[in-house]
């Protein structure tokens, strides 16, 4: 049972990374992965919308903020392993690569895919976020107190 939870957490992490990953970089890493398997579509890539929600006051009742585009697909490898993808945007190529990576991560190829695709992709996303955080930090105000008139 504990293993199952850990497996779900790991799958959730890679699927989330693939969903948010920049398309160009993901496709570049996927193109360089030369062991791409054959597959059958269970559900061909389809673009759609999801309604994004917020909460009033950040913590209160939910409300509908607006939609975002998402592309989803499902496929199966020759050995029957099923891969799913829900990725941001309208790119069918990105959804296909994400579903294949999701499937491969459930096979013996997992360590290889992790090392050659997911790890570099994760590093790239983390680097971009930390560059932005570093630029934001440089715009943080340092206050200093002026000498008060009544102290003179």
């Amino acid at each position: 049972m504990a293993d199952e939870t850990a497996d779900t957490e790991r799958r959730k992490a890679w699927m989330s990374l693939l969903a948010k990953a920049p398309e160009a970089e993901l496709l570049e890493l996927w193109a360089a992965y030369d062991d791409a398997p054959g597959f059958d579509w269970l559900r061909a890539p389809e673009a759609g919308g999801v309604m994004v929600r917020g909460r009033l006051g950040g913590t209160g009742a939910p409300f509908n903020l607006g939609e975002m585009t998402v592309t989803r697909c499902s496929l199966s490898l020759a050995d029957g392993t099923v891969g799913h993808a829900y990725v941001q945007g309208r790119s069918k190529a990105k959804a296909e690569a994400a579903a294949l990576i999701d499937a491969l991560m459930q096979t013996g190829a997992a360590a290889d895919v992790q090392g050659r695709i997911l790890a570099p992709l994760g590093n790239l996303v983390a680097d971009r976020a930390s560059r932005r955080a570093a630029k934001a930090a440089a715009t943080k105000v340092d206050f200093f107190t002026m000498v008060r008139g009544d102290n003179a």
């Binding site: 759609g48 999801v50 309604m51 994004v52 950040g58 829900y86 630029k135 934001a136 715009t139």
Partner: peptide, 23 residues
């Protein structure tokens, strides 16, 4: 364009307390 998209679902409410703030 929005009206032509099939609706896949509704998200969980976003956690703005976890925002990666630029400002």
């Amino acid at each position: 364009y929005r009206t032509t998209l099939p609706r896949f679902g509704m998200t969980r409410p976003v956690e703005t307390g976890e925002m990666r703030c630029d400002r």
